[in-house]
């Protein structure tokens, strides 16, 4: 399998630190009764979506979305 190589930018130490930051965030979310996403839950954190969805107007301008609209008869 020929493929594009993954850029090796993060050192092992960076990766460990990044995991540590994610763990810290997940721990404090658990204290607020936000379910732990470690190793699971396909749905992205609802806690973020609250803020993001409010202002989200699905600002796609791509052909993909046009095709989707056409296919499912969704008007703009």
């Amino acid at each position: 399998m020929e493929r594009v190589a993954v850029e090796n930018i993060f050192t092992d130490e960076d990766k460990r630190f990044n995991r540590f930051l994610v763990d810290c965030a997940l721990e404090s979310q658990q204290k607020k009764n936000i379910p732990d996403r470690r190793g699971g839950k396909m749905s992205m954190g609802n806690h973020l979506e609250y803020g993001l969805l409010k202002d989200r107007n699905y600002d796609f301008t791509s052909e993909v979305l046009t095709q989707f609209r056409k296919k499912w008869g969704i008007s703009e």
Binding site: V6, K15, R19, F20, V22, R38, G39, M42
Partner: peptide, 16 residues
């Protein structure tokens, strides 16, 4: 390879 991408940002690879 996907795991490498996850590990870069310290994310957890989904159990599913």
């Amino acid at each position: 390879i996907m795991r490498e991408l996850y590990e870069g940002f310290g994310m957890y690879y989904p159990k599913e």
